[in-house]
């Protein structure tokens, strides 16, 4: 049950998308999202979708893996779709069922909203699927570097993030283990009322917290033993360097955003 969580899952690979600098990928995702939210019509959506499709194709991640990650958002998709479908009353009326009216305008709007969410998630998934958590936080730390001037502890935040990501699988495994141990003592995690279920979580949460704190303590000691004292003067094993491909891809995404803006302002499509 717990093993199905795909949060931040990384599929190692050697495709062009995998090899890009994490900073490039992060910036491209930002540009991509901006383009997606600027897109105003069929043509713009088609252009953005084409780019996404090409990126997914190159990454060799497979549509199946992308779609599997969509499961948790199905509710949001249905909700968004339904709201837009029934509350937009423009264009000609297609169906009339009591108090429900479905119009061409509503249909179009619902389609765009659902497509937008799907494409938004696919784009960000493509980022986490092709970039290891370490590379991701590395890139993030570099990109947020300028904030250091404003006394934002960028390095510490990045370090916290990579530690958190690193420990998600460990904690999941631990939860599984403690759950089995308590089940062996007759604990019941499934049945009963909501209150019973909440109460049943105590034998799970207490040991989990205790062990999380213990791990944090041990990790802190291990880091200090290796002279960790924050980001100051710290050098890196893997230096991030922009390659020609990174510049090209960045240029492509800037062009994408520019194109979408022009399409919106001049042609409204």
């Amino acid at each position: 049950m717990l093993k199905d969580i795909t949060l931040g899952q990384f599929f190692p690979g050697t495709s062009l998308v995998h090899r890009l600098d994490p900073r490039t990928k992060l910036l491209c995702v930002v540009l991509y999202i901006a383009a997606l939210f600027t897109a105003a019509g069929w043509v713009s959506y088609a252009v953005v979708f084409a780019l996404l499709a090409v990126a997914v194709g190159i990454s060799r991640i497979g549509v199946k893996a992308l779609l599997r990650g969509m499961k948790p958002v199905v509710v949001i998709l249905v909700f968004t779709g339904a709201l837009n479908l029934f509350y937009t009353q423009t264009g000609t009326e297609l169906v009339h069922l009591g108090f429900l009216h479905i119009t061409t305008g509503g249909l179009e709007r619902a389609f765009f909203m659902v497509t937008r969410i799907l494409m938004l998630i696919s784009g960000t998934f493509l980022l986490t699927y092709t970039t290891s958590p370490i590379a991701l936080t590395d890139g993030l730390e570099h990109l947020l570097g300028p904030l250091k001037l404003l006394k934002v502890p960028v390095h510490d935040l990045a370090m916290m993030m990579s530690i958190a990501l690193r420990f998600i699988p460990t904690l999941i495994e631990e939860t599984d283990k403690i759950m089995s141990a308590q089940k062996a003592r007759g604990a019941d995690f499934e049945g009963g009322s909501l209150l019973d279920k909440a109460r049943a979580m105590v034998p799970l949460m207490v040991p989990l917290f205790v062990s999380a704190f213990r791990r944090a303590d041990e990790l802190a000691t291990a880091m200090e033993c290796r002279c960790y004292h924050g980001g100051e003067g710290r050098t890196r094993l893997k230096q991030l360097r922009f390659q020609a491909a990174d510049w090209a891809v960045l240029a492509l995404f800037v062009a994408l955003l520019a194109l979408i803006v022009v399409l919106k302002l001049r042609f409204r499509v």
Binding site: K177, I178, A184
Partner: peptide, 15 residues
Amino acid sequence: FKVGLVFQYPEYQLF
């Protein structure tokens, strides 16, 4: 109930 199972490192299940 009839088959009691003590896991490895069971001290981490106390709460």
